[in-house]
């Protein structure tokens, strides 16, 4: 695997001009040809993430979008230093979190977590300690960042935090145990816990997938505000293109472990430079426009990492594939401020 030959080692220029007024953006997460492989009990090496390259900078929300099996969650978990705990997993390439190399030393994330790095998972129930009250767990998070303060000051700060995530009776919730709360409540407590340490980089893996749209709207609103007000950097993993459309500064689309397209949302939703992205967008029933009689679908399903097609992994499902697509893997190439890994990107965009 030649990382050096990749044309995208340079930070991709942002297509959206909206962020140019803030030139002091700092790169907090940088992946460069990161690969994650899983060794099966039989000894086979399955590629889960293949040469992922993208960056997240302060004050920026990057949405990592894809279907199950795309490698988006594995990417997020590797960045958090979690996949490395599994001895069957091997991480290669380059990945820097807050300036620390996590490929050579995954343990650095442990020191960063709860201070500059925070994460939110899809399953809130399993991430909260069932035998501690919400207050105890949040206080812990608060102290990790700000040190010990008076009990009263801590409680009022926590109630404020809970109010920010849409929990109105925060003081009561502080004295409850996780099992007394609904899933939506727990998820918001998790997010409050992540925010208690005022992280510079937040990694959220499908944080709102299990929630109702009304609660999702509250939480996305909050994340949006923290990005703008606190210059927080967010890597948001989601399967929902609509969420990405609403929130993202950049959308990174993954398919079968590989980044296939990376662009600012306005440009991406206007014109896709990868047929998979177009297919994915056409699958979503419209909320505003005229309903089609039938939805346009992508035939077949996502390939398993054990049986990846040759060349471009998407070619068997692609309506535009040519012989070249089955032979050679397309590089993630720059197309004027956005990237696409499709042999026919230029041709199809014309």
């Amino acid at each position: 695997m030649s990382i050096g030959s990749s044309p995208t080692t340079e930070p991709p220029a942002l297509a959206a001009a909206s962020h140019e007024e803030a030139p002091t953006r700092e790169t907090l997460l940088a992946l460069d040809g990161m690969t994650v492989t899983f060794r099966t009990p039989a000894g086979d090496r399955l590629p889960l993430v293949r040469e992922a390259s993208f960056q997240v900078r302060s004050g920026e929300i990057v949405c990592l979008v894809g279907e199950s099996g795309s490698g988006k969650s594995v990417t997020a978990r590797t960045v958090m230093g979690l996949t490395q705990r599994d001895p069957a997993m091997a991480v290669g390439g380059r990945a820097e979190v807050l300036g620390h190399d996590i490929v050579s030393d995954p343990s650095v994330t442990a020191g960063l977590r709860g201070r500059d790095l925070a994460m939110v998972f899809q399953e809130p129930m399993s991430s909260l300690d069932p035998v501690c009250t919400v207050g105890t767990q949040l206080t812990e998070a608060l102290r990790r960042r700000h040190g010990k303060a008076s009990r009263q000051a801590e409680r009022s700060r926590l109630a404020e935090l809970l109010a920010e995530v849409g929990i109105v009776d925060g003081r009561r919730v502080l004295d409850t145990y996780p099992h007394q709360l609904s899933g939506g409540m727990c998820q918001r407590v998790m997010i409050a816990q992540a925010l208690a340490c005022a992280p510079r980089l937040l990694i959220a893996d499908e944080p709102t997938t299990a929630l109702d749209v009304t609660i999702q709207a509250q939480i996305l609103e909050l994340v949006d505000r923290l990005r703008t007000e606190e210059q927080m950097a967010v890597l948001l993993v989601t399967h929902d293109m609509a969420v990405a459309a609403e929130l993202a500064d950049r959308v990174v689309v993954m398919y079968a472990g590989r980044v296939v397209e990376d662009a600012a949302p306005v440009a991406l939703f206007d014109q896709q430079l990868h047929p998979y992205t177009s297919g994915l967008l056409r699958c979503i029933p419209p909320m505003v426009d005229e309903r089609p009689a039938r939805l346009v679908t992508i035939p077949g399903g996502v390939p398993s990492p054990a049986a990846l097609p040759t060349g471009c992994s998407f070619h068997p499902r692609c309506p535009h594939s040519v012989d070249l697509c089955a032979d050679r893997v397309p590089e993630l190439a720059d197309h004027g401020g956005r990237r696409s890994a499709c042999w026919r990107a230029e041709e199809l965009s014309r």
Partner: peptide
């Protein structure tokens, strides 16, 4: 109205009046 306005729309240029509901059911 609140339920519909809370639904994200796959169009970054789409703007609407969003009714944010307080709390949960």
């Amino acid at each position: 109205k609140a339920l519909i306005s809370a639904q994200p729309v796959a169009d970054p240029t789409y703007r609407r009046e969003r009714v944010l509901l307080q709390g949960e059911i």
